[in-house]
Structures are given as C-alpha cells and as structure tokens.
Nucleic acid binder design. Structure first.
Lengths: 304, 304
DNA sequence: TAATAGGATAAGGAAAACTAATCTATGACC
DNA sequence: GGTCATAGATTAGTTTTCCTTATCCTATTA
C-alpha cells in the first residue's frame, strides 16, 4: 500500500478547507493558528504543490486543493460516523460499570445511590471497587472516580472536589522527645500507607516541602480505614481525609498535629476514556456526579 | 465536529486488522511490532473497548473491531486514491522542472542532456539553476539535485555520487612562515566561500577535526568558480571538487595542500517531495539520473 | 496613516511515537 | 513432558513530531 501523507496534516487541511481560514480551523482543532499553518505547509511540501492561495484576508483553494478537500471531508466523516456508532453500541445494555475506590464508595457514593436510582432508573450501576486504578478496556469499566491531579493520558477528567488529606496520629505521639510539632518530626515516626492511594505521602511531603524523609518507608495497609485504625493505636502517622476522621478527632482518639496547604488540583475526578464523551450513559453519570459534588460544596463547605 | 480518535492509531489498527497480525502490520508501516501494539492499545483505550481478541498465535477481531475495520479501510483507500490522483494530475504537461546548482548543471547535467532527450523525448526539462536551495512548492519545482547528507525533512532523496571537496590554494602559499602543511595552518589564511554550498567549510573543518577555526570567517563569492579564481590569485584557500580543478592542478596554478577523509553521506542526491515518488515523470528523471551516476562511477572512478 | 486581521516564521518546549530489550504464554516437536 | 519457536505485551528511554509563544509581514480599512 502506498505511503499516505501525514494524517495530522490531512486533518488540518480538511478543516482549514472547510472554514477557508487557518484561524478558525485552529479553533475547531483546539490548537493555535501557527500549528495549522505549519501542518498545511508540510502537507503542501509532501505533495509538492500548493493547496491554498493565500490572498490578503482570505484563503482560496487551488484547483488541486479544490479536488482534494471534499474527498478528505468525506473520509473523515465516515470515520467519525463509524466511531460514534461504535460508542453508541456500547450503550445498548442498561448497565454502567463504575470503578471507584472503597473509601469514596462507602463514604460518598453509597449514601447518594438512592438519588441516582430515582433520577436514572433505567441505568443500573455496577460498582467495581478496586484499590488499584482500573484499566478501562481490560476491566470493562465505563467510568471511574479517581484521585489525582486531573491529568491521565487518553482520559477525560472532570474535577469533583478537593481531597485534602491531613496527617493524623494518636494524641500519645504529641509528647516526648519525638513529639510531632513540625512536618520534619515525621522522620522519627512510622508512615502508615494504604494501597488505595499509594502516593499520598509522597504528594503530601512534597507539598510540605520536606525533602529529608523517604516517602516510601513505613507500613502498608490495604485500605485507608486500616491505616487509620493503626494510627489510633499509636503505630504511626496516617494520612486521612478530614471527613473520614471527624468522629475520631471529636472523641479524642486522633489528633491532627499540623497542616500544610495542598495544591488545588489534587482532587477527586470523574474519569472516562476520551472517546466516551458522547455516550449517553457516561454523560448521565458524569453530569449527575458533578452536580452532586457541587451540592456538597455548598452544604458542607470544604469537605474531604 | 466530534473529536476523532488519534489518526495514527486508527491507521495502525486498520493495517493490523487487514493482516490480523501486529508483526506484519508493523512491516507494512515500516515500524516495529511494539509500535503497532502500542497504537492499537491506545485506540482501544480511547474507545473504551477492545478491538482485537489476542489469541495465542493469532489475532481475531471483536465484533466491534469487525464493524470498525472495513470503514477505516475504505476511508484510507479513498484518501490514498485522491492523493495519487493529485500527484498524477501534476504530470499532465510534458514539462519537468528541475532545480540544480550552477556548477553541477554545467559540469554534469549539460553534457548528458542529449542522452536525456534521446531516451525521454516526450519530457521537456525546465532547468532552474539557483545557488540557493529551491522551495519545491513555491518555486514549482518537481525534482532537484542537491548536495548534502541525504536527509531533508519531508523529502525523499537518492544518493547519486560522493562529492568530495578538497582545499585548493596557490602554490605560493606553500612556503613561508604560514606554509600550509596541516589543516590547523588554515588559521593563518583566508577561507574562500561560495554561496552555492555555504556550509562546505564547516563540514570540511568538522571532518578534519579542526575546532579552533571559525568556519564562517573569510570571503564569500557567488559561485564556486569565482572562489577558485580567487584561490588561483593567492587570496586564500577554497574548497573545490577534484574534477573541477583538475586542469588547474595539472598546469600548476593550484595545489591541494592536504586531504582529509570525508563522511560518505556527503554527496549529491536526487531529491523530490515524498508524495511525488509515484509521479511517472519524476520517476523517469530520478531513474535516469541515478543510472547516469552509476555509469560515472564505473568509468571515472571517484569523480567529484 | 495608524489600526486591524490573518497568515508566516523562528525557536524552544511538550507530547506523541517509536525502539530496544525483555517478558509471557502457548502450541509444536521430539 | 521438556524445549523450542512464535507472537504479542511491557517497560524505559530516545527520537521525532507537533505545538506554542512571540514576532513579523502584508493588505485592508477606518
């Protein structure tokens, strides 16, 4: 099979030909005008002939471009239609697979499930609660709620709410020579990790600007609840969401020795494969979850 | 318009679906098996569903893949057909525009023009002899003969023959305190440049492993012939092809003070836009020029 | 004639794509 | 039933491509 021109440049040309404007093509493609200009130029170089005549405040297609553009338009539309069809077929069954970490499942989603069933009786949620991040394709997951910085390659992410973790420890650890006064004092205590968010200490220590402590040392637990239990028993210092340990604080089993400001983008996100943005069920869940999160923000003010 | 999946991954999937093998798809695309594997995976991630079932020594399309592949095949074939049509339309007129530097035009092409007219009477060559590298699109050039390392982005290049340059100077410069004995001695003489190959001294000095001399200093002339004339008159040291200065050497006007081995890939190349590889006229010229160059190699042995 | 609109261009940086090396699974062969 | 060969997956690192920022250029238009 013959070598095709670079597909990115074909796409840029097709859009530019439709708009007869590099600037507007750039908007459609969510890139800059310079990018489109480059791509079209490189396609012209490949073909060895110009596709546009650059007039003063207008573009015009050359005869070559004139004959080329409609074919490309048709080809890309075909691809687009097929892609959409593929996505929609996935939505035939009334089931939506949601991957979600155990903590946020029990603390956040379960209490709101009644609302979901009321507003979307036709869509049955199938909840996959794994500590590890799900692989969308392999695990057949449609949408997930994840903790992170909002950037996952190939995935679309919408911020729900900030998930600020604070260090918690037994009050016993506040006295003595190793008393927890400043973040640096953590070097003399055991860090309690959980596998649901294995990076939380790394993130926290970076935010606290503590470089001397190896974020990987300490003990590992399956879930956050187990790590917190260990903290209650004085085994070390865990990271926990404020909402989760409110009761323990009030009843004196745990204290928060100190806090540091966390970057805003560490938060919970609704996440799905980029191509799934148009799937009605994914859309429905995403919209619902974000609306719920917005409500939280209003009523609880600074949850998590 | 809806977001399309990454086009590179669509292409990889389409080829893999045709072969039902990542390995063979990789061959067709001139990449490695790992590249295809990655691309297909990323497409599956984008779509949120698998397109292949990986059996043990075979690939099988999932129903989704089954319905997707033929559409893509058709779309890419359409693009391919349109591209070929575009290239062939360029060949309507019986004229081929050739960009070529003045020196090689007079020294190499002109003597062989009769042969071209004999073997390809239907194609009229239009020779564009510019010192500077031609812009294929803007200058309407179909094919060029250029000097370089054989790598130009977006262009296909076929090596014709090596173009080894040697330093030449008047015999007068061989004596006295600044006598030319080793490449380092050039620091005490004027470098004579020409605009046709403005980088030749830079390349030569790099090959000679001389770092102390600024390759840009010296005098500049329009053509190699002028620079050589200046060398004859003792103005400095020029770089010239052996064939060009043979007479001057024999008659004692110039000498070659020393030589250094030059990398093999510095040579003259037949060059055209990648997409033009299938154009009959470009093909014809390219084949002819390469055949001529091969003949040279046999009869002259080490020309240039 | 200054302001504006739209494209071109250069240089540097970010992201995607590719490679090399290695690993895994399984069917074939003796 | 052990060993070999085949084909895809995976990981880490590199290369290439692509994109952006900033600036320039030209022709209109106010």
């Amino acid at each position: 099979m013959t070598r095709l021109p670079p597909l990115t440049s074909l796409r840029a040309f097709e859009v530019a030909a439709r708009h007869l404007s590099f600037t507007r093509a750039a908007e459609e493609l969510h890139v800059t005008q310079a990018a489109v200009s480059h791509q079209v130029k490189s396609l012209e170089d490949f073909l060895g002939q110009p596709l546009f005549m650059r007039l003063t405040r207008a573009l015009e297609l050359t005869p070559a471009g004139e004959s080329y553009a409609p074919v490309l338009k048709e080809a890309f539309e075909e691809i687009e239609r097929a892609t959409r069809r593929l996505m929609e077929d996935q939505d035939r069954q009334g089931v939506l697979n949601v991957s979600i970490s155990p903590t946020i499942l029990s603390r956040w989603l379960i209490p709101r499930l009644a609302d979901w069933q009321e507003t979307h009786p036709e869509i049955e949620l199938r909840l996959v609660s794994t500590p590890k991040l799900a692989d969308f394709v392999r695990d057949g997951v449609d949408v997930a709620i994840r903790h992170g910085q909002g950037v996952w390659p190939g995935l679309a992410a919408h911020r729900m709410f900030q998930a600020k973790s604070v260090p918690v420890a037994s009050p016993k650890l506040m006295n003595g020579p190793a008393a927890l006064k400043r973040p640096e004092d953590l070097s003399r205590h055991t860090l309690l990790h959980d596998l649901v968010e294995p990076d939380s200490w790394r993130i926290w220590l970076a935010a606290a600007d503590v470089k001397e402590i190896d974020p990987d040392r300490g003990m590992r637990f399956g879930t956050g609840a187990e790590a917190i239990q260990a903290a209650v028993e004085g085994a070390g210092v865990a990271l926990a969401r404020r909402a989760v340990i409110r009761r323990d604080i009030e009843e004196g089993r745990l204290i928060i020795p100190f806090e540091v400001p966390m970057p805003k983008n560490f938060a919970f996100y609704v996440v799905y494969p980029e191509g799934a943005a148009k799937r009605p069920k994914v859309r429905a869940f995403c919209d619902w979850a974000l609306a719920q999160a917005r409500q939280d923000a209003m009523t609880e003010d600074g949850e998590g």
